[in-house]
Nucleic acid binder design. Sequence first.
DNA 1: AATGAATGAGATTTCATTCAT
DNA 2: AATGAATGAAATCTCATTCAT
Lengths: 188, 188, 188, 188
Amino acid sequence: MEREGSEAVSMQALAAEAGVSVGLIYRYFGSKDDILLAVITQVLDAFATQVPAAIEAAGDDPVRRVAAAFGAYCRVIDEHRHAAVLTYRESKSLDADGRARIKRLEVETSQPLRAVVSEGIDAGVLVSDDPDLVAYNLLLLAHAWALKHWYFEQTKNLDSYISAQLALALRAVVAPAHQQEYADLLGG
Amino acid sequence: MEREGSEAVSMQALAAEAGVSVGLIYRYFGSKDDILLAVITQVLDAFATQVPAAIEAAGDDPVRRVAAAFGAYCRVIDEHRHAAVLTYRESKSLDADGRARIKRLEVETSQPLRAVVSEGIDAGVLVSDDPDLVAYNLLLLAHAWALKHWYFEQTKNLDSYISAQLALALRAVVAPAHQQEYADLLGG
Amino acid sequence: MEREGSEAVSMQALAAEAGVSVGLIYRYFGSKDDILLAVITQVLDAFATQVPAAIEAAGDDPVRRVAAAFGAYCRVIDEHRHAAVLTYRESKSLDADGRARIKRLEVETSQPLRAVVSEGIDAGVLVSDDPDLVAYNLLLLAHAWALKHWYFEQTKNLDSYISAQLALALRAVVAPAHQQEYADLLGG
Amino acid sequence: MEREGSEAVSMQALAAEAGVSVGLIYRYFGSKDDILLAVITQVLDAFATQVPAAIEAAGDDPVRRVAAAFGAYCRVIDEHRHAAVLTYRESKSLDADGRARIKRLEVETSQPLRAVVSEGIDAGVLVSDDPDLVAYNLLLLAHAWALKHWYFEQTKNLDSYISAQLALALRAVVAPAHQQEYADLLGG
DNA sequence: AATGAATGAGATTTCATTCAT
DNA sequence: AATGAATGAAATCTCATTCAT
């Protein structure tokens, strides 16, 4: 989706990258903004489908559901790494409507994560007076895998990134009485 | 440095914002890239001076030094909010050299934070097998104050952002035996 | 290639003259300098092909070969009059490399003329202790047809210019014993 | 008057070269065109005074007067080498009036040379049916000392340039019966 | 459906000219 | 008289978009 090196994305570069002509792109997208919106939407859609699915598949344990949700976020980001960076980089070119829409979608996207964190608190296995912050931070750390990939790739791969970040984040919120129980997630 | 609303930064817009003519900017900067580099460097320089100073002023307690460092990062970011966003948004236009230089500076910039975290671990008051990750996450959360300001400003101001994030982050790393001691930082 | 009257050549003017858009020019040339270089190179290439051909076609007589060479130079200049003037006028905008390249090509371009003059001297039909100067002067007089066209066109057309200049130049170098033989070239 | 290397002449470069401020230049000249016009006029004025003086000083012999005139032209050009090149290079920026004026002055400037050539023909010591061409060519060869200095300086200094060109030119026009008499000018 | 040459509005950059000091 | 910072119109160059093939 973007060129390494010269990271500007002109339509001609985009077309060359995709191996099609510029004209063809305009058959499917009305404008460059439409493409950006479509790309971003695609990522957000991936969140919308894969995160709830992962939560569902994780069973009933709230902590494991949080872990599953975070892992799913990170995996989606990893699959759309360039698109995720694009979101931060190109959103200036969107008009106010486009940007508002994306912000709204991003907040909606974090909803399942907020929900499982709240579940955990309600169940007494997590402790926090600001579940929204906990959830949003996890989302940020997922984004960071794309944004700061040049840094993290020096020492981690996707799986070790997920477990390291998860261990750190959970240690802050898993109730002391339950920490033993999740030793596998909380790490050494 | 940039307009809210139409977030593209043309030289015309830049000049208008600064209240000078386009030509004058070129008396002080060789190119648009030079301006971007200067802006980013200015932020990184602010980190380089203010973070160590804040750490110094915090006394000897490692946890309070970490807290001071994180607070200083966030305050610098807050003072250069638009510039910080610019770093994520415009770095594509820099050439490879410029980007490499900025990445290097960013890593150097996080060094003091890494140092105080390590101090805390050595002193036995913090517990972590990945102090670099702890430090880098704190840096990310400082950046997030700029990047996701549209979100956080709904519920927090700078001070409450700092204390909320700090409480969360420290709960993950302060040794259980010392948590009582830092109740003021760890929150509720 | 340029407008009589307003002789400045902006890209806009250039595009208008060529009947295409500015953008299209940049599809074929990387910069304005590239265009200038291409135009100049085209003239020098015309010299490189047409002058040797004219010499060849002139037979074995060294004096007639000199005459043919000079005529060919003048005809190429005449066909590229504006481009030739451009060389003198715009070469300032070229970088050092470009200018050096053009100077080298110009000297190479005069080589065939130098060769036929030297032939004539060796054959004893021309007399000069500085054949390079004789050759370079002839090249200059060909250029002059473009540079000083506003002057020469008052009294001469291309053919009369060629024969008048040739008569003058040859009188200085054809050996006295052979002057009779070339009365048709040396004039009244 | 011009920078070697980057040969474009901006007003700021001009001022720096002259060691004064841009503002000061505008106290003495109304516009950049005025400067160019003044520079060119200065050269043409130098011709107007020094060439007739040199002719006068050369005595009565028409051939020696031609030689003196050509030498004077070349010396003036040599003293104003950059200005002479400028004439060819920058005249595009002048308006139609300015260019017309310069062309008129150039023709007037060649008048003394034309006069001495005609004298020589009338006296029977020179032979030519086109004295204007003979005179104008000599003027061109004087200009060439500036225009093609990069070439000629490889093998000649001002004096050897003058005598070599003069020898060549005179051989074409001095009547055969008088060539012995001017052996010192006509060369080996 | 697909192409990519062509467009031209808009971006960056330069520089002759002005003017407060 | 002299400066040089400041201006802004005009130049060069880019690239999203169109359209003939």
